[in-house]
Design a protein around this nucleic acid. Structure first.
Lengths: 186, 186, 186, 186
DNA sequence: CATGAATGAGAATTCATTCAT
DNA sequence: AATGAATGAATTCTCATTCAT
């Protein structure tokens, strides 16, 4: 692993453990086992590592999505999308929160959408294929809908895992409800 | 305005302008026109102002909700709820983001739900009245639904105002779509 | 002595001892027996103390000039001016060099003249009085001449003390030569 | 241009632009387009470039002096010396200041005279020739006088160009005055 | 209660210098 | 000879916090 990657991985660890405010460059370099000065060869400051962290996370999420989303019908496929996003949210909730917080602190809130774009695109491509296949209504705006779809699933998933520590059972009820809504919507 | 209120208002301004990380107690007291030491008579630290800020925001949001939500039928009422939440999101989006970021940094993420509780309650009370009136399905879980409802509206509204700078026209399309979904869901 | 004065005095000591480049704020505050942070309440940086040091030196030089310059005739008075400037140069040569170096480093070279202005004025006032008294030529431009006079005396004195470590005897030869020149010139 | 020359030229640029204190080896090598480590093959430190810079400047000044100083009589020759020193001062004033500052910082102030020695010698040689020719008084100490001469001209020239941004007209008045003084002195 | 000058621990940052390539 | 990434000691600078007034 090269120095830059070492810094990013270490920064993720430290940020997750201490929160952004309490994290220091000293600790990041210590964990990365590089010299203090080396950090500044790659990044300007603690917060400027954030976009790279976001990138890393989106790549991981995209990987899992493309590996796991599948289905014969649109219903099966959407069901699988919901499952994956619930799983991803569970796994990366802290990291997501972290990035979100990091971006809000640096006036890069606007970048949030840009960072998420590849994920929206993934969903949109699914929709485009299904639309060409006649499985959705003719009037469907795929760009528009990809965001609603992702946003609504994520918002419910977050509420489940981020704040609630809800049971698996409850999660399943939520998932079914969501599936109905989405299928009706498209 | 007493000193404590002056601090809170000033902290909101400074946090919004500089982000939490770059904000300092010095700047907050300067804007509040009080002495450095006075801050510590009221608060322990920069971040300990956060809950008070959240309180202030929720009170403002509740005020606007109870002042403006009304309607003869459930459809009219939900329409009005959607309108208000879109308006509130637009007005308080930065502040919401700020509080959210502040809480994530202090491991108080869990408090997010507690802070939002009064808003959920407001929605829940609407649903309870309408359910007793026979305007919803018998099986409706009002607690459960109040969160889904608030969450989904807010998630769309945020996407509109926080990341998109979307047009009013587009917002209206979104609102209609949301209204249909919610009416169907309850 | 207040904190600012303590910093200035200490800065003079440290700069003289170590040179500007090798001097550190840490050492200045240590010698001044104040806290590190206190320094930054009064000055922005190491070099920003320089103008204040210059002021201090000019005040000292003016004091000695006005205390010691005197004479019945213009010849006696100029002789006394030469003596004093030689003495001052000897005493403050390091400090002068220091300030000069400090100013060249901060693009404030132009301030050099401003700092010296009070000294030039002192000389000019002597000339004005003597001119009114008819002891100089009618066409003498006092402003102009005050600078030539000061400059030439100082230039010789510097060469004596700054680079030469010349003998007292040699210095006296120089002084006599200078006196002749100046009396002739005015 | 070989690496060492590249370093010297680059160092002059950087020192002039940023001042010695704020100049870094990194910037010097960057401007010289050589590697960081290469600097240390030729110089020990930032300040150790200073003597070489001084050498370069003195060579340039001597060149211009020997190219341009000429005259049938001693009056013409001194006039030409004054002109050249004024011109040189104008051209190299920043560089001179820089070297002077650099030397003061390294306790090599004493080297100043050594660096200037070739210039003093140039003047002294002129005086020796003229003295042998009977154009000066018999008692003239040429070594002694070469320094006074150079010093007084330079001191006035500096005051003109370094601090004053004076007009060409004023400069000419000064030059005439100086010429009279010098001719009388020798 | 209120003040604000002073503190000093600790974080950010720089930069001369090295050394494996 | 030349390179330039990496180093880490040294410094600057910040800022929460205190306390005498």
């Amino acid at each position: 692993m090269n120095k830059e990657e070492r810094i990013i991985e270490s920064a993720i660890d430290v940020f997750l453990e201490k929160g952004i405010e309490k994290s220091t460059v000293s600790e990041i370099v210590k964990k990365a086992e590089i010299a203090q000065g080396t950090f500044y060869l790659y990044f300007d400051s603690k917060l400027s590592v954030m976009p790279k962290i976001a990138e890393v996370m989106v790549v991981k999420m995209l990987n899992e999505l493309s590996k796991n989303v599948s289905g014969e019908t649109i219903e099966e496929e959407i069901k699988s999308v919901i499952d994956i996003i619930f799983t991803l949210t569970k796994e990366y909730k802290s990291l997501t929160t972290l990035i979100y917080a990091g971006l809000t602190q640096t006036q890069y809130v606007g970048d949030w959408e840009k960072i998420y774009a590849p994920l929206y695109h993934f969903i949109e491509n699914l929709l485009i294929v299904r639309k060409e296949n006649g499985e959705t209504r003719e009037t469907l705006n795929t760009t528009f809908t990809s965001k609603i779809l992702f946003g609504s699933i994520e918002s419910v998933a977050e509420q489940m895992y981020l704040y609630d520590d809800s049971s698996e059972e409850k999660a399943n009820e939520y998932k079914e409800e969501l599936l109905k809504f989405i299928l009706h919507g498209i």
